[in-house]
Write a protein that binds this DNA or RNA. Structure first.
Lengths: 110, 110
DNA sequence: TCTATATTTCCATAAATATAGAAATGATGT
DNA sequence: ACATCATTTCTATATTTATGGAAATATAGA
């Protein structure tokens, strides 16, 4: 993963409607949900939802799968995990990075 | 953390220059770097960098600390960790979520 | 084929965001 | 106080992104 790829993933969820859609999909599990159910749950007009779903799919954070008349959307957990790994990559110059070292996992000052 | 707060954090790194700045800070460790060093390393004009640093600080992903004539910027690891927790919250409706269940941690199909 | 339902594309408009030069502010040492 | 260096604010412009109605497309059952 490079910076541009990560920006693409981040931008796809850096928007209120899309973040809500994505979290709904994360919570829905691997089977996902049809677009209409997402629209109903989040009260988003169809064309607006379609625009946002396309963004998520293009970024790679969601997958699309037609099933009969419905199109199911599901979160791509691998892409999400890859993104999170990228964000903390080489954290603190590779120095030990545990709760004790006040680094990446630093706790509230006490 | 709510959706709007998460969007604020995500938007602050969903931009190429800012993501590079943030990762540089993550890798620099808790002491951070002065603005000028960031500008030099990433070849970003001062005013542009200042704009982006303000975004990161306002979002809460970076902290600012004056030291003499320099202003040091450091990554806020807690905010980052909080964001990552939010993104996977209630994953798969709370069902078991291990490598075996083809859920959040699902592996490549084999 | 006709009808109903699901979803997407088209389109125009509105709003938010990024860029960087120039000028202003702030801090330090002399 | 002055000169110098670090950083920010101001400003204008360019670019990207979001919104949702209306029309188009696709699927399936009667």
């Amino acid at each position: 993963m490079d910076t541009q790829a990560a920006v693409k993933l981040l931008a796809s969820i850096a928007q209120e409607a899309r973040l809500e859609i994505f979290r709904l999909l994360v919570q829905a599990g691997p089977n996902g949900l049809p677009a209409g159910a997402i629209a109903d749950t989040l009260a988003i007009p169809a064309s607006t939802l379609s625009f946002h779903l396309k963004e998520l799919v293009h970024a790679g954070l969601a997958n699309q799968q037609p099933q009969g008349r419905f199109i199911y959307y599901a979160a791509n957990y691998q892409a999400m995990n890859g993104l999170m790994a990228f964000l903390t990559e080489n954290c603190c110059q590779g120095q030990a990075c545990t709760p004790d070292t006040a680094c990446c996992n630093e706790k509230e000052p006490s």
